[in-house]
């Protein structure tokens, strides 16, 4: 069945308003996008929607109780809350370096959770 639907592309801050013509989950045509990414986005939204996920993880011995972390790559949208539950259990030890892997291969999705920043050990 051919259908059209409206989407807003979230690849970049432009936020193009897309009109997507599809046959099932196959994208036939996109309109309104200003770059090729729009098509990529529309295809992904129909088959395997993913989002970048940013949250925090408990950290010991640092100046803050939490360290910000994020998914290296967009994570499957339906599993975001499973991921958050997993991350909630974690506690790591300072010092932490930016891009340090905090959780490897999260939920077996092949995506690492990494630290967004350095966090040195608190000097006492």
């Amino acid at each position: 069945m051919r259908a059209t639907e409206k989407m807003i592309c979230i690849i970049c801050p432009m936020g193009c308003n897309l009109t997507v013509t599809r046959e099932g989950t196959t994208v036939l045509r996109t309109e309104g996008n200003t770059c090729k990414q729009g098509l990529t986005f529309a295809e992904a939204e129909l088959t395997d929607p993913r989002r970048m996920v940013a949250t925090t993880v408990r950290v010991k011995g640092a100046i803050h109780p939490l360290i910000p972390v994020y998914t290296e790559k967009p994570f499957p949208k339906p599993r975001i809350f499973d991921l958050l539950r997993e991350v909630c259990q974690l506690e790591i030890e300072a010092p932490v370096a930016m891009n340090q892997v905090v959780l490897e291969n999260a939920l077996g999705e092949g995506i690492n959770i990494i630290a967004s920043r350095d966090m040195p050990r608190m000097s006492t």
Binding site: A54, S116, R117
Partner: peptide, 10 residues
């Protein structure tokens, strides 16, 4: 790159 705020700052 699509970075979180702390990474951009760092």
């Amino acid at each position: 790159e699509d970075l979180p705020g702390p990474s951009y700052a760092q």
